[in-house]
Amino acid sequence: MTDLVAYVVAITCVLVAGFAGWHTIRRLPFGNPLFYAVGVLEVVLIALLVGGSIALASTSRDVDGVLFVSYLVTLVVIPPAAVLWGIAEKSRWGTGVVVIAMLTVAVLSVRLLGIWEGTYV
């Protein structure tokens, strides 16, 4: 887990959150472009889960493995849950849920870096 990976994931999440925020402000329903944007992010998060698990298995760092893996899994679970909620909620707040979820994933990815580096316990 490197700084670059964590911040690229966080920036990607913020971009998707901005796109969803634009949908919310314009009162647009949850549509295919937003679905595809979250889908691309989900692929990145799955790659982070696999890469982070491999890095954890091969490191000699003092990392809390259970906490680290639980953050990785949480990062992967939040976007699909937000998409399901966004599709089910027909008002503008369906996309608002996606905004909050993507910002949450951005914060969790930075927190994950702190766990990896041992600065957060």
Rank of each mutant, 00 (worst) to 15 (best):
G52Y: 01
V98R: 01
G51R: 01
I54W: 14
Y71I: 15
A10P: 00
P33M: 08
A37F: 05
S53C: 12
V14T: 09
T59W: 10
L28F: 09
L41N: 03
Y120S: 09
Y120R: 09
L75A: 05
A82H: 01
V107Q: 08
V38Y: 02
H23Y: 14
I115P: 00
L45C: 05
G52P: 03
V16Q: 01
G114H: 09
S109Y: 01
F30M: 11
G21D: 05
V16S: 00
I87D: 04
R61W: 11
N32C: 05
L108R: 03
P33H: 05
G18M: 04
E117Y: 00
D64Y: 05
G51S: 14
L72R: 08
V99W: 01
S91N: 14
L45T: 02
Y120Q: 11
T95R: 13
V110P: 02
T12L: 13
I54H: 08
D62H: 12
V77Y: 00
L49N: 03
A88H: 06
D64G: 06
S53G: 15
L34Q: 09
A37K: 02
I11S: 12
P80V: 13
A106M: 01
N32A: 09
L48A: 15
V16L: 03
L112C: 03
L15Q: 02
V5G: 01
A55V: 00
L72T: 07
I115T: 10
I46Y: 12
D62N: 15
L75Y: 00
A6W: 04
E117R: 14
L56Y: 07
A20L: 02
A55H: 07
W116P: 04
T95M: 13
V98C: 08
V66K: 13
L113D: 03
L108W: 06
C13G: 14
L67E: 15
I54R: 10
T74Q: 07
L67H: 11
L112M: 13
I25N: 04
G86A: 15
T74P: 04
S70A: 14
I11C: 10
P33Q: 06
V69H: 05
L84W: 12
W93T: 06
V83D: 01
T24A: 14
T95A: 11
T59R: 08
A82Y: 03
T2Y: 02
V83Q: 02
E117Q: 11
T104F: 10
A81W: 14
A10I: 04
W93E: 07
F35Q: 08
V43A: 15
A10D: 09
V40H: 00
V77E: 02
E42A: 09
V50L: 15
I46R: 06
T119L: 12
I87L: 15
R61K: 13
G114I: 00
V40A: 13
L15H: 01
S91K: 08
L28H: 11
L108Y: 06
C13A: 08
R92S: 10
L67K: 14
V38D: 00
G65P: 03
L112T: 07
F19D: 03
M102V: 05
L112Y: 02
A82F: 07
L84N: 10
L75M: 15
S60E: 14
H23R: 06
L112R: 01
R26T: 07
P29T: 12
A82L: 01
D3N: 05
M1D: 08
A106V: 01
V97R: 02
V73I: 15
S60F: 07
G96N: 06
Y36M: 13
Y120E: 12
